[in-house]
């Protein structure tokens, strides 16, 4: 509870500090683009395609909002909710949203597959709540410009990734010093798993990861606000969050099962699994620190 309060306070401080301007105002000049680098590549094409889909979805949700506004039809509302769900699924598949954290976490720790769903859902939920708090505070209480609010998310992102880096370092320390190894050994080394022996989720990690407000949620809320329909925006964001939970939970479950299969394979081959487990835990911590560090840098550049 104290942790939650601290994080809420932190969020409060972040959203009330003076802001920077919108994306079209960047003080640091950048060099002109280098121009073409290669012939069309399939990977580059995929991201462009994904962005185009998101663009169409954005416009479709906006259109549905206008329809609800003008007629208030149930079909339009259902359309918004359907689109928001799909948007959540698709959007969470893009970079960010804690997928790396979730995947790494379950590669590092023995857990039930239901934990994968729980952690994925909690992170998504907190991301949605964070966006609602951010927009609610800034737009409705502090009357900030919409475009400034979009950028304010970046500050929260920066801090969120910073916290994850710290937790990742701690995870690495534990893995390297063998604390984790000992624990997992007890659980996994014996025949079968005893109920209740499973690893508990790390609430700090979940909170820190969820703190990053989902930018799409912010955009939808701002749009709703511009159309005097904040309530509708909150409903849409809730559904968006459920869609995101589907994607992130899928990653979590896949990691849980992947780890299990790997350990079973090594075990079957008659090899010691200790070292593998320790290696996995350390590697996962390195990935968490590395990726979150990169995201942190990325957010820093945008500040």
């Amino acid at each position: 509870m104290r942790l939650v309060l601290t994080l809420l306070l932190l969020l409060g401080v972040l959203v009330s500090t003076p802001t920077l301007a919108d994306p079209f105002h960047k003080s640091a000049a950048r060099p002109p683009s280098e121009g073409a680098v290669a012939d069309p590549s399939p990977v580059g094409g995929f991201f462009t395609w994904l962005a185009e889909r998101q663009h169409r979805l954005n416009d479709a949700i906006a259109d549905a909002f206008h329809d609800v506004e003008s007629g208030g039809s149930r079909a339009a509302l259902a359309l918004i909710l359907g689109l928001a769900f799909f948007y959540g699924v698709l959007h969470a598949a893009g970079p960010g949203h804690g997928k790396t954290v979730v995947a790494s976490y379950f590669v590092a720790h023995h857990a039930r597959w239901t934990s994968g769903i729980l952690m994925g859902s909690l992170i998504s939920l907190i991301q949605g709540v964070s966006a609602i708090v951010l927009v609610g505070t800034l737009a409705m209480v502090l009357r900030a410009k919409q475009i400034e609010i979009l950028n304010r998310g970046t500050m929260v992102e920066f801090v969120s990734y910073g916290l994850i880096v710290v937790i990742g370092v701690w995870m690495f320390y534990r893995a390297a010093t063998g604390e984790l190894h000992h624990h997992d050994h007890q659980v996994e080394g014996g025949k079968g798993h005893r109920r209740g022996d499973h690893h508990k989720l790390n609430p700090r990690l979940i909170l820190a990861t969820g703190l990053t407000p989902c930018a799409s949620a912010i955009i939808i809320l701002l749009f709703a606000l511009a159309n005097s329909a904040f309530g509708l925006g909150v409903i849409a964001v809730t559904v968006l969050t459920i869609g995101m939970a589907v994607t992130i939970s899928t990653i979590g479950v896949a990691a849980v099962l992947g780890r299990r299969a790997l350990i079973a394979m090594i075990d079957k081959a008659g090899m010691e699994t200790h070292r593998l487990e320790r290696g996995l835990a350390m590697a996962a911590a390195v990935v968490i620190v590395g990726v979150s560090g990169l995201m942190m840098y990325d957010a820093w550049v945008r500040l």
Binding site: Q54, P95, E157, L294, R302
Partner: peptide
């Protein structure tokens, strides 16, 4: 401007 890793596009033109 924002960046890609975290922030896949949020403005579409």
């Amino acid at each position: 401007m924002t960046a890609p890793v975290a922030a896949h596009p949020h403005v579409f033109i």
